[in-house]
């Protein structure tokens, strides 16, 4: 388990990554020569229209998918070329995940779900740290509940707690507020923000929601498999404008092709 180091190192780095699916005519190039670095202790959002490759990028960064070309590194470890066992171990110990849905095992309580990666590793959690997360996420009185007894927002908060429980080097969040209403979504985003500010956590979040992106320190924009913009200190309005701009670009491009 890594310690939250205040030194601004690179938590995640991608270098010259290419990823394509399919063959011949039907081939789709999801990522074209993508190189990007995510600083440690920062909250970065990845945005882009549908089909821009943002989910693919995250999967590759997280070691859930292989790249055709290029390398990916988490901290000091180069994950490109690692075997399944090593990748699995990496995901267990150094990476935290928050998905849009289906984050929790229905047969375990909230508390057991939070300590899931540690249980898998057969390791003991740091009780103080866990308590702190639980308290910050306001889950103290929900620990013995099963997921079916929790609201959507509570489930996502449990997922957040789990992602942080092992103090990973980076947390990947894939549309974490996509299924939540505004208030629950705000709670989750606030917590993610707090974890970066107070605990020095590194977060990489894929989202399509400009309001969510506004919580980040930086927004990386993808379109057609390439990084097209890198925005620091985003606000919702700035992001909306950028997105509108892209859609015009894309529509124009398609208008040419049509």
């Amino acid at each position: 388990m890594s310690t939250a180091s205040p030194v601004k190192t690179t938590a995640v780095a991608a270098q010259g990554v290419w990823k394509a699916y399919g063959q011949g005519e039907a081939q789709v190039v999801a990522l074209r020569d993508v190189s990007v670095e995510f600083a440690s202790g920062a909250f970065t959002a990845i945005m882009g229209p549908s089909g821009s490759g943002k989910s693919t990028l995250m999967h590759c960064l997280a070691g859930l998918d292989t790249t055709d070309r290029g390398t990916v590194g988490i901290g000091d470890t180069t994950i490109t070329g690692l075997g399944d066992k090593a990748l699995t171990k990496l995901r267990r110990d150094k990476i935290g995940f928050i998905f849009q849905q289906f984050n929790l095992l229905p047969t375990l309580t909230a508390e057991e779900n939070i300590t899931l990666p540690l249980a898998i590793a057969g390791a003991k959690a740091d009780p103080d740290w866990i308590k702190r997360i639980i308290h910050t996420l306001d889950l103290t009185d929900r620990l013995s509940h099963k997921p079916t007894e929790l609201s959507g927002g509570q489930q996502q908060r449990v997922a957040c707690a789990r992602a942080l429980a092992s103090r990973p080097e980076v947390v990947f969040a894939d549309e974490p507020t996509g299924n939540l209403d505004t208030r629950s979504g705000a709670e989750v985003l606030n917590f993610l923000r707090t974890s970066v500010d107070d605990f020095g956590q590194t977060i990489v979040m894929v989202t399509h929601d400009p309001n969510a992106a506004a919580y980040a320190d930086r927004v990386v924009f993808l379109a057609d498999g390439q990084i097209v913009e890198d925005m620091a200190d985003p606000t919702a309005d700035k992001v909306i404008d950028k997105m509108k701009h892209f859609e015009e670009l894309v529509a124009a491009a398609q208008g040419e092709n049509a």
């Binding site: 066992k85 699995t88 171990k89 110990d93 289906f102 229905p106 898998i120």
Partner: peptide, 16 residues
């Protein structure tokens, strides 16, 4: 399937 995917994603090995 989804549950198994989650477990593998959070670090459960094939043997486990």
């Amino acid at each position: 399937t989804k549950e198994l995917g989650l477990l593998r994603a959070v670090g459960m090995t094939r043997g486990q």
